[in-house]
């Protein structure tokens, strides 16, 4: 496999905790501009895979490359984020004591060192960008609301909005529609498809309706490695996938 045109390239990656192999010889390639859905039962290693990509966990072995050339195993979370990988957690994690606007302001692409932050003053361009994102994530009227007061779905959107503000090349989105109403789910699918037009995206999700709505290539993980890969129809017709999900 050539790394050259990939945005994310994992080869033979393994990681274990106390003898438990959370990731086992996992190989996964994401092309530039591609959106991929990752499914798999609990404990399949989806979150650990994201931990490895974002630098939270170091793999025991294997290669992890970003954008064809950057070895991600040599960088920590902040560096990886600065390179252009954004991550949304499974549990929505926003700064609850800040307003929606401040949440976005902190996420906005820009210098990440202390002194610029200390003397930072909002520019017109930044204000416009925040307005844009508020529009995209449908929170325009909640601008001054504390993030703590948002509904669960709104927090998910705010977190996605923070990812957008980072302007990453690759977005890792962990269970974006958990706890959302059907209407919100549909809205989120539309939002992600919008985003995927100019970003590479990996979405981890259990909700098959949502995955179908995304209409992208699907990878099914099981026990830390790839079980099946292809269109949703192909994957859901795979005997082994059925077996894993239905426990037959």
């Amino acid at each position: 496999m050539s790394k050259s045109n990939t945005i994310l390239y994992l080869d033979g990656v393994s990681a274990s905790f106390d003898g438990f192999r959370a990731i086992n010889n996992l190989s996964l390639v994401l092309d530039k501009g591609e959106m991929r859905a990752i499914i798999g039962p609990n404990g399949a290693g989806k979150t650990t895979m994201m931990d490895i990509v974002t630098g939270k966990t170091r793999p025991d072995e294997g290669e992890v490359f970003f954008d064809g050339q950057v070895d991600l195993t040599r960088h920590d979370e902040a560096e990886i984020a600065m390179m252009g990988i954004g991550r949304k957690f499974q549990k929505p994690t926003v700064f609850e004591n800040h307003s929606v606007e401040d949440n976005l302001m902190l996420a906005l692409k820009g210098p990440r060192s202390i002194f610029p932050a200390l003397f930072h003053r909002r520019s017109a361009a930044e204000a416009r960008r925040i307005d844009d994102i508020l529009g995209i994530i449908r929170l325009g009227d909640k601008r001054d609301e504390l993030a703590a007061n948002l509904s669960h779905g709104q927090k998910q959107w705010l977190e996605i909005g923070m990812l957008l503000a980072q302007d990453p090349k690759l977005l890792l989105v962990d269970e974006p529609v958990a706890g959302m109403t059907d209407a919100e789910t549909e809205e989120t699918a539309r939002l992600l498809k919008d985003i995927a037009r100019d970003h590479s995206v990996i979405v981890v999700e259990h909700d098959m309706h949502f995955v179908r709505e995304l209409g992208v290539k699907v990878t099914c993980l099981h026990e830390g490695s790839v079980l099946s890969e292809g269109t949703l129809d192909f994957v859901s017709a795979d005997e082994r996938v059925v077996e894993v999900y239905l426990g037959r």
Partner: peptide
């Protein structure tokens, strides 16, 4: 009151989130 101050509180409330946004929480 500065942006840094907001960041400081952000680190207090959700440190890992600030890291995944590219901030160096340790420097903050």
């Amino acid at each position: 009151g500065s942006k840094y101050g907001k960041l400081l509180m952000a680190v207090r409330d959700a440190e890992s989130r600030t890291r995944f946004l590219g901030w160096r929480a340790e420097n903050v």
